[in-house]
Design a protein around this nucleic acid. Structure first.
Lengths: 135, 135
DNA sequence: CGGTATCCGGGACGATACTG
DNA sequence: CAGTATCGTCCCGGATACCG
């Protein structure tokens, strides 16, 4: 036994952490935040460069995401007053520490991506496509 | 050196994984999915029990979340045809494997929650509260 | 360049009612 | 109990325009 269901979690902490987990997910749990942290994990970026590095992010969302991350103390914002203005973003120590669990998540994603796609394909095949037996 | 900024990520994979990471985040990246997996990591649950275990989730969202997770092959849905009907949800092997990175994320959250709150408080204190100098 | 302010459309989500 | 279907709302986030 012991393989039955649950030992991998090995603790009630998951339970107790629900609130804090839920809580944290609302801060760093969104796609853009994670992608920004992932980008900054490679190297500091300037605003524009960051926007170019993260495909699909709008200026607005980048601004908002960066502000939230700065507020949470995960990144620093450094203004170099040159001409033209230059603003550099970089991870703080806390931000850097986040990249560790983030990487394990990324690794998991990479490892199981195929299985998930396959499962989806199987599931979809079984679903009654709308209009299958309609007149 | 090596302490400069980035070695904690140690690879370009973060970059290469951006798509897959982004991709996976859209499946398991939402709050409810994670909380459901966390709950099922403890033990299998029936629908109602699950709803009670996850505070704040609506019936609709629970249904949708469970369906997506089943589609992705992360959980199993077992119908016991008793009276009244009984449906049990449990993690698959893949689902169980997800609890590992999930726990490292939860641990991170737990460890840095205080720092984040503090940082927020500091940041908020510096912001011009709306109406600060208004009549 | 590095933002802020505003508008607005679509989708996520909750509430409710109904079914087997 | 374990869902499905429908409706209405809210707010997320893109597009756009403008400022320092």
């Amino acid at each position: 036994m012991a393989d039955r269901h649950t030992d991998v979690t090995a603790s009630a902490r998951f339970d107790a952490e629900n609130c804090s987990l839920k809580d944290i997910l609302e801060r760093v749990g969104d796609k853009w935040s994670i992608l920004v942290v992932a980008a900054l994990a490679r190297e500091p970026y300037r605003f524009r460069a960051l926007q170019r590095a993260i495909e699909g992010i709008s200026q607005r969302m980048l601004t908002l995401t960066l502000q939230r991350l700065e507020r949470d103390g995960l990144i620093t914002r450094t203004v170099l007053d040159l001409r033209p203005p230059r603003v550099e973003y970089a991870l703080t120590a806390t931000g850097r520490s986040l990249t560790i669990p983030l990487r394990s998540l990324a690794d998991w994603a990479e490892e199981h991506r195929g299985a998930i796609s396959a499962s989806r394909a199987r599931w979809d095949a079984k679903q009654p496509p709308p209009g299958s037996s309609a007149s």
